[in-house]
Amino acid sequence: MSDHRKNPLAKRPEILLIEDDPQIRRFVKAMLTAEDYRLHEAAAGEDGIAQAAARNPDLVLLDLGLPDVDGIDVIREIRQWSQIPIVVLSARGQERDKIKALDAGADDYVSKPFAPGEVSARIRASLRRAAVLDKNDAAETVNFGNISVNLAARRVLVGGSEVHVTPNEYKLLQVLLRHAGKVVTQRQLLKLVWGPEHLEEPQYLRVFMGQLRRKLEADPAHPKHLITEPGIGYRLLTEC
């Protein structure tokens, strides 16, 4: 269920799809229209940037392989004046491009070919995050699975009993929570948790992530929340 459908007063979210392939545009349009989004289309990067400025959509769905402009440049351009969520469409295996897109300010990515429901799940997650950021009053407690994080008291409960997390582990969890549902690149995490001088030490990140998993996950080798995206970064899933 999309959030916006529960509230009849909310306006239908507008999505701008920047994609050069007409077949993909056709089915994404059919899919999103059926899910009650309003869709605008752009077949090229320049037109996409222009429409993003003119229409001010709620979310941009951007194909990285455009004929006229590099998709990364489209992200940079839009980011100069807007923080609207950008979800990138990219071929599987092109990790480098995805990292570049995320570091340039994209919110998330979907690998082509998409699994059913993947695009709308990513769109929903990004829109929800944007809505939370807009309200600007983060909840005091966040609950997911059997985990409960009290942001004011910096306490973490698993199955009702308190779990001790070190300051760095908490910081890591906090950053992931702030971007819940969205992939955060290794580089972004290192920068936000340990500071820009530790960008070249991803092993630390992996050690801390392993420790956090052991504290929060029932089976750390089969995690439900703290998900690794190999070659890219990490994602905190708060709904399963």
């Binding site: 092993q203 392993g210 998993r213 080798a221 995690p223 998900i227 690794t228 190999p230």
Partner: peptide, 13 residues
Amino acid sequence: WFPLEEIVGAALH
């Protein structure tokens, strides 16, 4: 350098 656990976890996911 990767903990094997993390790679297995990613694959299972």
